[in-house]
Amino acid sequence: MDAEVIVVGGGVIGLTTAVELAERGRRVAVWTREPPGGTTSSVAGALWWPYRIEPEAKVGGWAVESLRVFEELAADPGATGVRLVPGVHAGARLSRLGRWAAEVRELRAATAAECPGGGLWARLPLVDMPVYLAWLEDRLRAAGGTVLRRTLDSLDEALAEAPTVVNCSGIGARWLVPDESVRPVRGQVVLVENPGVDTWYADADSAGAATTYFFPQPGRLLLGGTAEEDVYRPEPDERTAAEIVARCARVRPELADARILGHRVGLRPARPAVRLEREVRPDGRALVHHYGHGGAGVTVSWGCAREATRLVVEAV
């Protein structure tokens, strides 16, 4: 296939953007160093919530647009991996959230029984990322798109083969653009057997390096986590894992003895603000930059993908 558009990056941002473009009739190829199941996206806890992402003025719209899509996908969780699950954000207050919060159905103050220290209760999309990424890839192929394993040294390599390139390279944008404002935020999680937890819990300090959350996924419970800025280490740390389990067990004591199934590490591609803009080269070829989503790539994925698609369409 001679691609009209090459999307660089096979994580959730790249695949969602490729799906939008292919379903708009574009011939699309995704170039990715790792298969989608091997990207940072596959490690994500993937609870819908605008977390560690800017600019605030745009994030709300992207997030709500994505929320509506996930609500529809939750009608078939076995295929999509998307479920609507209740839970609480400890310490959160409606008054501290953006205008997007008014668009979240059922979002309310938690009762004392639901969250003793106060917080917010909501039924939100929770995404089983390995299932979801495979579903996105299948949807892309059904629309005529392809996914190719390619490692790039420069975005010019893609521009040499297609008139339009969408740069969804995540942390790779630090070197491919290059953009030194892209920084890793290391996230480590622990997978355990679920002792019967059917609600999610999150207590995340947006400025801290340690967070506490647990998300029930099919066949496992995901415990987190960390948000270590400028740390590239991809290997799980044993001491960090023990601290994660201990923090979660302070909320649900039965988690202290849950059998560990595995450990995962991902590097969130943080940036002071998402870069979503078109660059037109002197020869008329278009490069749409679409990266820097930090810890909320899943949350804003559909809204951002649709904006990126508009930039591609307008460039033609």
Rank of each mutant, 00 (worst) to 15 (best):
R233I: 05
V280Y: 05
R233K: 09
D257Q: 13
A246G: 00
V251D: 05
G224R: 04
G284S: 09
L221I: 11
L222R: 04
Q217R: 15
R247W: 03
E228T: 13
P269V: 09
E254A: 14
A246V: 00
V245F: 01
H289V: 08
P216E: 01
T212C: 14
R281Y: 09
L276Y: 06
R264L: 14
R278Q: 09
E235P: 02
T212G: 05
G225Q: 10
H263S: 06
C248W: 01
L267K: 01
L255H: 04
R275G: 03
R268Q: 09
P253F: 10
L287F: 06
T226G: 02
V280I: 13
T212W: 09
H263G: 03
G224L: 06
V251N: 07
A246I: 00
L223A: 03
D257R: 15
D283E: 13
V245Q: 01
A249N: 05
R250Y: 02
C248D: 11
H263P: 02
G262C: 08
R250L: 13
H289T: 10
R220G: 02
D257S: 15
A273C: 06
R264M: 11
D257M: 03
A227F: 04
R233S: 14
R247Y: 05
G284V: 09
A273F: 07
Q217D: 10
L255I: 07
A270D: 13
E228N: 03
E277W: 06
L222W: 05
H289C: 07
A241P: 00
T226C: 05
R271A: 09
F215P: 00
V274W: 01
R281I: 06
L222M: 14
R268F: 10
E238L: 14
L222K: 07
A258M: 07
I260F: 00
R239Y: 10
R250S: 12
A227Q: 14
A242H: 10
R220I: 04
P216F: 08
V245W: 00
D257N: 11
V274L: 13
D257P: 02
L267M: 13
T212E: 04
G262I: 12
P272I: 06
P272K: 08
P216K: 03
T240G: 02
P282D: 13
G225P: 07
P282I: 10
L255C: 12
C248Y: 01
Q217G: 12
L287K: 04
F215Y: 15
A246E: 15
E228R: 12
T226P: 03
I244G: 01
R250K: 14
V245T: 12
L223N: 00
